[in-house]
């Protein structure tokens, strides 16, 4: 565990132990708040203290029977799935174009396409609120889907671009020289190689939209109340343990996504012959 060379002095060993202890504490800091709220969602009483008086599923029952939470879940899924699909198409096409050799002003175009990720989301949200008001898009699903697509597409561009780095263009040329039309080349050669990046990008896009609350606060009405919006008002007004039940389910979803993305990343690196 210490992983030190044999010539290390005692002071060095001590230092290494101290470092490992510090890191253990940082890891604890990272993981403990997330772990700490999970058991609280099974608390039989509406308190947030340990030890818990008893276990129950009442907050999960509450979540799955309360129309407000169910509607919020439904809105969130509709918006996130549509925004993901849109940003997949737009983002993948753009990443493929940007990967071509000597693309003019590549750095500038890329910086522009990524900027929705960098610009403070309140600015984007207020701007969209003004703009969509003129177009009658406020308080519509379509407006939120457009807004979330703009916020989510940078993630697709980045992940697909990352899989295209080190992509051997001669594979495409080989396919073309053997007589395959461009679409076949794309389907049979490019697509399988960039697919892991596309799926990671899709997951990032999905989570970006599924998690987004600021834009929704500005441009949505109670009819399009999403899950994060519902949680936000829940925390602000009266924090109920149903929120911890929702949070627990979201953490488990995040864990599943994390594992998927990690497996995909390894597969992609193996496919492209990169050894880690």
């Amino acid at each position: 565990m210490l992983n030190l060379p044999p010539y290390a002095s005692p002071l060095e060993r001590l230092w290494r132990v101290a470092l490992i202890l510090l890191c253990a504490m940082v890891l604890l800091y990272l993981i403990s708040p997330i772990i700490a709220i999970m058991p609280l969602s099974f608390n039989s009483e509406p308190y947030f203290t340990y030890p818990m008086p008893g276990l129950s599923m009442r907050w999960y029952e509450d979540f799955f029977t309360d129309p407000r939470w169910l509607d919020a879940l439904k809105s969130s899924l509709i918006i996130a799935i549509s925004a993901t699909a849109l940003s997949m198409v737009l983002g993948t096409l753009a990443a493929l174009g940007l990967a071509k050799a000597n693309f003019p002003y590549r750095a500038w175009v890329m910086a522009f396409l990524i900027s929705p990720m960098i610009v403070p989301v309140v600015i984007t949200a207020v701007g969209m609120y003004f703009f969509f008001a003129n177009l009658g898009l406020n308080n519509t699903y379509f407006g939120i889907i457009l807004a979330h697509t703009a916020l989510a597409t940078p993630f697709v561009v980045i992940t697909v671009t990352a899989t295209l780095i080190g992509f051997d263009q001669s594979l495409n040329r080989a396919g073309a020289s053997l007589g395959a039309p461009p679409l076949t080349v794309f389907r049979k050669i490019t697509l399988p190689l960039i697919l892991p990046g596309m799926i990671s990008g899709a997951l990032f896009a999905f989570i970006t939209s599924f998690d987004e609350v600021v834009v929704v606060l500005f441009i949505a009405s109670p009819d399009q109340r999403t899950l994060p919006r519902q949680m936000f008002s829940g925390i602000r007004e009266q924090i109920s343990p149903t929120i911890t039940a929702a949070a627990t389910m979201l953490v488990l979803t995040a864990a599943a996504m994390l594992v998927t993305v990690e497996l995909l990343r390894r597969r992609s690196e193996r496919l492209r012959g990169i050894r880690s």
């Binding site: 993981i31 989570i207 949680m231 911890t244 995040a254 996504m257 994390l258 993305v261």
Partner: peptide
Amino acid sequence: LPFWTSLLVRTTA
């Protein structure tokens, strides 16, 4: 895992 967990969930936590 925290990186992938919803910002709102972490804030709630």
